[in-house]
Write a protein that binds this DNA or RNA. Structure first.
Lengths: 347, 347
DNA sequence: TTGAAAGCGATACCAG
DNA sequence: CTGGTATCGCTTTCAA
């Protein structure tokens, strides 16, 4: 069913029908009701491409997700973020236009999307320091929101981020307060902004507590299971192994768990976790494992907020908006002060 | 830059320029070269919506991913599958149109997509038995490929699937051959086709080896970490705990590992894994942890194949195509016959 | 409050 | 081989 047919079947002009459907005020309520009813009855769906061509609005949001070829699997965070965003999109009538690019192809991908005008706005995932994409998008004038932040950018831009620095500072403080002195940081690639922030939160905490951060205990790489495993294995083989791990991803954390397993150690559950919940209460009861639920709720919420901001920017462009989620990266599951499992090695 | 402008700048008609760019034969090679050069120079990108409106082809593939609200995180399999598919799409010039729907909204989502004609084809994820989506899509005549299979469908349709039954049969056989008699199946929701197939492979293997499958040891639910944890915890608390686990997802497997950890057991690495590799060689060397790489390569390959089939169907509709990937679901990492860790409970 | 007609940016038929 | 023009389905002035 197309607009013209609908119009004819009602004895009206396409103009009027279009106006009725799109809620223009200059249509009498009587005709509007008639039109709406008929539209319903015939299950009329306006052709989005025709509409887009006429209005210049595509009612679509682009998500470009970078795929490091070394990644063993796609970062689940992307999916959860998108799930959150799509709740908003669905409500507001936007579609998701997904582009998966390898690291090299990234700039070209953005350029193409902008040139083709296939979307009204873009979500930028996994920003890096001095990220060229931000300048690129600003220059083409396509609204965008960054999931995360990029330092080294002079222009203001929209972003949504969780409070990574604060989360890691707290996590590290927590470990220190449990009595740990040698804490390993198994971090993500520190070309990524979030990893840099996490590291600095970590260092801040140690320094504030009078502990000299040991560079040998601060690792950085793509966060695979393999990476967590190898890192932990290597670290535990040292003469002075760490007694706690602060890790930047659950996937890598599983690798760490495997390594401690193999070493015959029982980790004091010093596995890392991002929690949107702001307090440590679950650490005390431990009834539910909050790793996944917390991660999800945090990332989804970020997706929702980013989508909301982006749509708002599309509808009425204004000054950039920031949104810092007070998410937590919490540590461990043990209710008692953490044991120093590594001592078993030397025992 | 638009076609008309490009044409004018070349002193040609839009018609000719369009023909040159789209590779029509009736253009002299000289003009074509001129046109292509100019297009390059001006970074001309045809407006996809105008093109779509004119041709009736949207050059987009729809992926509809269902999101059970109970899921703690988005199934990473979707992302990896899409990553694989998008390799093909990128090459062939298709875009991805992503729709995330909650279980209830699903049928409507498909109906809308079909009615709006925003895509040239659809990938159906996570089919269920007697899946209504298949009849729906067949009836509207939109090309589609199912990732997985659905029984109870009379019409023929395109699908790509890994050999779940065979994989689980083999996995179970492997465990039996290691000496296990009480093997738990921690399966996915058995309303899902793949889970049903896995279960039947499992049962087949036991039966063939003269072991009566114990219904109490066969669990089915959404595959969360929590589910794996609770299942294992409950099972291990029995008077006659299982000595091995066959599990349907790595996420749940991590939960199982946690439970065995807590029980003071050292799993004989009876963790489950999908591997595209067809032999068991890595079980002997164990140098690398193949869980993630194998999963990824298998699912990505499925994505690639599905995309290939779908695009082919779009271009020249023909009889349905099946593609059964010979992926493996393998068990454990131990090179020696598995210990019976559960005995420790009774010791 | 309604309608006629001119776009939006491409494709494709029909002439030349 | 090249060009004029109708067309795709909808929106949006401009007139009535």
């Amino acid at each position: 069913m197309k607009l013209k047919e609908l119009a004819k079947s009602l004895g009206l002009s396409p103009t009027t029908v279009s106006r009725a459907i799109n809620g223009y005020p200059e249509v009498s309520e009587a005709t509007r009701a008639r039109v709406m009813a008929a539209a319903q009855r015939h299950d009329y769906q306006p052709n989005p491409r025709a509409k887009a061509l006429a209005t210049g609005q595509s009612m679509a949001i682009g998500h470009v997700i970078p795929l490091a070829t070394r990644h063993e699997m796609v970062n689940p965070v992307f999916a959860d973020f998108i799930a959150g965003a799509s709740e908003i999109y669905a409500r507001e009538g936007f579609d998701i236009h997904l582009t998966v690019v390898s690291d090299e192809g990234e700039e070209k991908a953005y350029r193409d999307i902008a040139a083709k005008g296939s979307v009204d706005g873009i979500i930028v995932h996994a920003p890096r320091a001095n990220d060229g994409r931000i300048a690129l998008l600003s220059s083409v004038g396509l609204p965008f929101v960054v999931h995360g932040r990029a330092t080294g950018i002079d222009a203001a831009y929209n972003w949504v981020d969780v409070n990574n620095r604060r989360a890691f500072r707290r996590a590290a403080e927590f470990l220190v307060d449990l009595g740990h002195r040698r804490i390993a940081l198994v971090n993500g690639l520190e070309t990524m902004e979030f990893a840099m922030r996490r590291r600095s939160g970590f260092v801040e905490a140690l320094t504030a507590r009078g502990i000299e951060p040991d560079p040998d205990l601060m690792l950085s790489d793509e966060m695979t299971e393999q990476y967590g495993y190898q890192s932990a294995k290597t670290l535990l083989a040292r003469a002075d192994p760490p007694t706690a791990f602060l890790c930047s991803s659950m996937i890598s954390a599983f690798g760490i768990r495997r390594a401690t397993d193999e070493a015959g150690l029982k980790l004091g559950r010093d596995l890392s976790l991002i929690a949107h919940d702001d307090d440590l209460s679950y650490l005390q009861n431990g009834a539910d494992d909050p790793i996944f639920t917390a991660l999800r709720s945090s990332v989804r919420e970020a997706g929702r907020r980013a989508a909301t901001i982006l749509i708002d920017q599309i509808r009425n462009p204004g000054p950039p908006v920031h949104d810092l989620l007070e998410a937590e990266f919490l540590v461990g599951r043990s209710t008692a002060p953490a044991p120093h499992p590594a001592r078993a090695l030397n025992a």
